[in-house]
Design a protein around this nucleic acid. Structure first.
Length: 409
RNA sequence: GGCGCUAUCGUCUAGGGGUUAGGACGUGAGAUUCUCAAUCUUAAAACACGGGUUCGAUUCCCGUUAGCGCUACCA
């Protein structure tokens, strides 16, 4: 969770300019008048000649007089960091250990663009220093950029934060996770019917393993996750995002959640699907959710395949109809069964079963055929909890009405 | 191209100089019968390759290969 912000770079320009000014004053940065086209042309040429395309330091040694004259003439200039031409910079990373970069591999990178907007390299350092960050934890794609930031800390005479780079998450094709694979935003997973806590648990297990007493456990919810999580358990290799495993975590959380906790999440799905429950009493909603949740894989199930439990507007799964309601005589018997239920003295889970089994015996038909047929007629689905519990949840009125329609499905 | 990182079942991972290389997801088979997307049982499935070091490497070292990342007046 976060406790402040968001902050906008556009409102913190003074800070970046002041930081750049400091670097300029101490000789760790300089003005660069090279134009964009000029730089691109030089880069292209270098590539053609097989040289490393790197800024050549054209403006590195301009005289103070020339700088003043050109700036005075209104020539636009960027500010570049003056990277030492010898030695190396070591990143002490909490995950990757010490990683050494030769300074000659780095170019004099831009801190401030000619329009006065800072680049990322300057703004992270200025912000982290200003906000007194103790730890910088981010994707491993930034490991190679870290020496550029360390150089700035050193030039500014500031203490470095702890750096920790975490492995990247890859798509199924082992390429970096991108829009192409579906979703890169956590909100997208919420929209997909994933319980937030399940998603967090899944994500935490990607590239990190708990140690100690929790070693080997996979289902670890929020609070415990927070207390257990640490930099030491983080792995250094990238991980492939496995949708199947996420679905499994989601299933586990939905099943383990009490109905009270599930209800608001389910109601949100209903709102999105435009479903208004046929009954609004909380007790009934909770008990029906409890009935259904062992078979739920996703929050969307409550608005989709479980639709018939909550609304009278539901559709029949063609495959289920084909499998269990193909026989016209079974349909006819369901209509007759509706009559039995209508006139039965009571309508409890026990009596419901009794009526059905007696009716099956009377007709010399297997109870299973009626049970399976009823399930489809009542819920539209071939998969459901125990039929008699379903009937009790639906209530006598709906059961009778839906069974009567069996011949018209 | 240069630099950096990584390498255990299909996937997430545990392990670590001598192990039947463990678990989870997924997959296959069986059981159950009131459906299965439930439950139970069960099976298949991995140390990238080549050199060292060592009595002994999957584990330590080097190299190769592969993958990923960085290499912008993007973040």
């Amino acid at each position: 969770d976060w406790d402040e912000g968001p902050f906008y770079q556009s409102q913190r320009l003074a800070l970046y300019h002041a930081t750049a000014e400091k670097l300029l004053a101490s000789g760790h940065a300089y003005y660069c008048f090279c134009g964009k086209e000029q730089l691109e042309a030089r880069r292209e040429l270098a590539a053609e000649e097989g040289r490393t395309p790197k800024y050549e330091g054209t403006c590195r040694c301009l005289s103070a007089g020339e700088i003043e004259r050109r700036r005075g003439a209104g020539e636009s200039a960027a500010v570049r960091f003056k990277v030492p031409q010898t030695g190396s910079t070591i990143v002490h990373d909490a995950v990757f250990g010490d990683v050494e970069f030769q300074n000659t591999e780095l170019e004099d990178f831009v801190l401030l663009r000619s329009d006065g907007i800072p680049t990322y390299h300057l703004s992270v350092v200025a912000d982290d220093l200003d906000m007194r960050m103790t730890h910088v934890i981010r994707g491993a794609d930034h490991l190679s950029n870290t020496p550029k930031q360390i150089l700035q800390y050193q030039a500014l005479g500031a203490a470095q934060p702890v750096f920790a780079h975490v492995p990247l998450i890859l798509g199924p094709d082992k390429m970096r996770l991108s829009k192409r694979h579906g979703a890169t935003s956590v909100l997208a997973y919420k929209d997909m019917g994933i319980v937030p806590e399940a998603f967090r648990n899944f994500l935490a297990m990607l590239g990190w393993t708990p140690s100690g007493a929790a070693a080997g456990r996979e289902i670890i919810a929020n609070d415990e996750l927070i207390s257990l999580f640490g930099l030491d358990g983080i792995s250094r290799s990238n991980a492939v995002f496995d949708n199947d495993k996420l679905a499994w975590f989601n299933t586990e959380y939905i099943r383990a959640y009490p109905a009270e906790r599930l209800l608001p999440l389910v109601e949100e799905e209903w709102r999105r699907a435009g479903l208004v429950p046929a009954r609004s009493d909380r007790e009934w909603l909770l008990s029906t959710i409890d009935l259904l949740k062992p078979r739920a894989r996703n929050l969307k199930d409550f608005a989709e395949s479980f639709r018939g439990y909550f609304s009278d507007e539901f559709s029949y799964d063609p495959a289920a109809v084909e499998k269990f309601l193909k026989d016209a005589s079974v349909r006819e018997m369901l209509v007759q069964l509706a009559g039995k239920y209508e006139s039965a003295p009571e309508f409890t889970e026990v009596s419901i079963e009794q009526v059905l089994r007696e009716f099956a015996a009377e007709k010399s038909i297997k109870a299973g055929a009626l049970i399976n047929g009823s399930r489809v007629a009542l819920t539209g689905q071939g998969v459901a909890p125990s039929l008699f519990a379903v009937m009790a949840a639906l209530g006598r009125g709906r059961v009778v009405e839906r069974l009567r329609r069996a011949t018209q499905i």
